[in-house]
Amino acid sequence: MGSPKPLLVSHTYKGDGAKQRAIKSLLKSNFAEISYSIYPSLMESLKGKTDISMRGRSFNFLAMAVLGIVALRNATGDASINTIIVPENGYISINPPLTRRRIGSHSTRTTHPFFLSKFEELLRDAGFHVKFFNPYQFKTKGEMLSECKDQAAIAKAIPLSVSCSHWHRRNIQCGHCVPCLIRRASIHHGKFKNDADYENQRLKTVLNERKKRDDIQSVQAAIIRLNKTQDYRGWIRQSGNLPSDPDVRKKLELTVKRGLTEVENFLKAEKL
């Protein structure tokens, strides 16, 4: 039996479909895929109001992956196909709250081990027996980039990729939201030269804008607090229940610590 060949699942917002296709063209193997386009909309009774949230995006990914599993089982007759790979870096998977007001739903955690395990239970009760697997649970985003086996391809993919939580508003990455900061820190860590364009390239100027600086200041506050206390264990517990295995918990703690250090090093390079 050869290596497993994954079915790629994606969905797009306006403006990023072409980017996804360009990145897919960099893959050495030809993969089957399921994809669809989506734009935020509201039910009829709420028409006229604006929905700019992307909170359901990760749930859509997982739901589409379940659909892919069912399609593969029906097409092949192989009921043993059950693994959904969720390739998310360990820091953003845990996404520990940067400040006290982010302990709740202000920060999404849709690839958190606790959420995925509960979603597995829900799907099992509904008759869908699947297993979610994150191969990068103990890797930072910077480590994922620097350890990629095809450095030439990943260097080409970086300027094409989209990480920003505000992308769908202006079709350009803001450069200062938490996903953008994690992204830019990882690129700095991997020493890559070329990146995508950002609406706010210079972070120093963002600190002077009250409506934009919240995420940067929240990250700075978390760095200062954790440098003083080193209580990473208590910090990551605030994002949700963790696996009971003490070795797994320790790995998660160290991953989160390294992830925040990547951001700290990037901010220092930006002289913040």
Rank of each mutant, 00 (worst) to 15 (best):
V86T: 14
S107R: 11
Y232L: 07
F133E: 13
V178N: 01
D197L: 14
R55A: 13
L160I: 14
I154G: 10
S218G: 04
Q217K: 08
L260W: 03
C174L: 13
K19P: 02
A269N: 13
A155Q: 15
A155S: 15
R249N: 10
N265Y: 05
H189T: 12
G142I: 10
D245G: 01
V162T: 15
F132N: 08
R101P: 00
A18T: 12
K211W: 00
A157F: 07
E270N: 12
H188V: 08
H112D: 12
L226K: 05
K257A: 09
P179Y: 11
L62Q: 10
R184P: 03
H168D: 05
R213S: 02
R202M: 09
G77L: 09
R100D: 14
L42S: 10
N89D: 15
L8H: 08
A126T: 06
K141Y: 12
H176F: 15
I224H: 03
N60L: 10
L260R: 00
L98I: 02
L160N: 09
G234D: 10
K271G: 05
E270S: 12
I103S: 00
L207Q: 07
K191T: 05
E209M: 13
A63Q: 10
H11L: 13
T108M: 08
D245P: 02
I172C: 04
N227E: 13
L67N: 09
F266W: 07
R237N: 12
T111F: 01
P97K: 03
R202A: 11
L254G: 00
R55Y: 07
N265T: 08
K19G: 06
F128H: 14
R233D: 15
L203F: 06
S45T: 13
S218C: 04
G127E: 08
P40M: 06
S165K: 01
Y91M: 14
Y136C: 05
A269W: 11
I34Y: 12
T205I: 11
I172M: 05
L42T: 11
D197G: 07
K156P: 05
I81G: 06
